[in-house]
């Protein structure tokens, strides 16, 4: 039985032009995909990455104690697969940290076995 080929329309965000591109799975193409509508080669690379393994940096907050704010901003130190964003949020939302914290401190190591850490994006002193 012949497998249905994937096809997706998207807007390229590599530069401000924002080409409307169409990424089509193709057995004839070397990369496995044809990209239409892109004005430059970077659009093709973006399109194929978006359809095969889209990733995003997740930025959010965790609860913090002994600080002058209630939330500490954090982010993934590398992009994570897009489909894991909400799973990551669940894990992150379980965490409570205590001040003091320095920017860059690892809050969660190797989240969901992705090899990506959750790190603090600001320093917060302990309040006395």
């Amino acid at each position: 039985m012949k497998e249905t080929l994937k096809e997706k329309e998207m807007i390229c965000i590599v530069c401000p032009i924002g080409c409307h591109i169409n990424v089509i799975e193709s057995n004839e193409s070397e990369d496995g995909y044809e990209v239409e509508g892109n004005k430059c080669p970077r659009g093709k690379i973006y399109g194929i990455k978006e359809i095969t393994s889209p990733t995003r940096v997740v930025s959010t907050t965790v609860s913090i104690e002994n600080a002058f704010l209630k939330r500490l901003p954090v982010k993934t130190d590398n992009p994570v697969p897009k489909e894991l964003i909400f799973e990551c949020m669940k894990v992150i939302n379980e965490v409570v940290v205590k001040a003091p914290v320095k920017v860059g401190d690892i809050i969660i190591e190797n989240i969901l076995d992705t090899g990506v850490n959750i790190v603090a994006t600001r320093s917060m002193n302990e309040i006395k």
Binding site: V57, S59, P73, K75, V103, T121, R122, S123
Partner: peptide, 10 residues
């Protein structure tokens, strides 16, 4: 490089 707002401020 790509920073968050608080990192940029700090």
């Amino acid at each position: 490089e790509e920073l968050t707002g608080p990192e940029y401020a700090e």
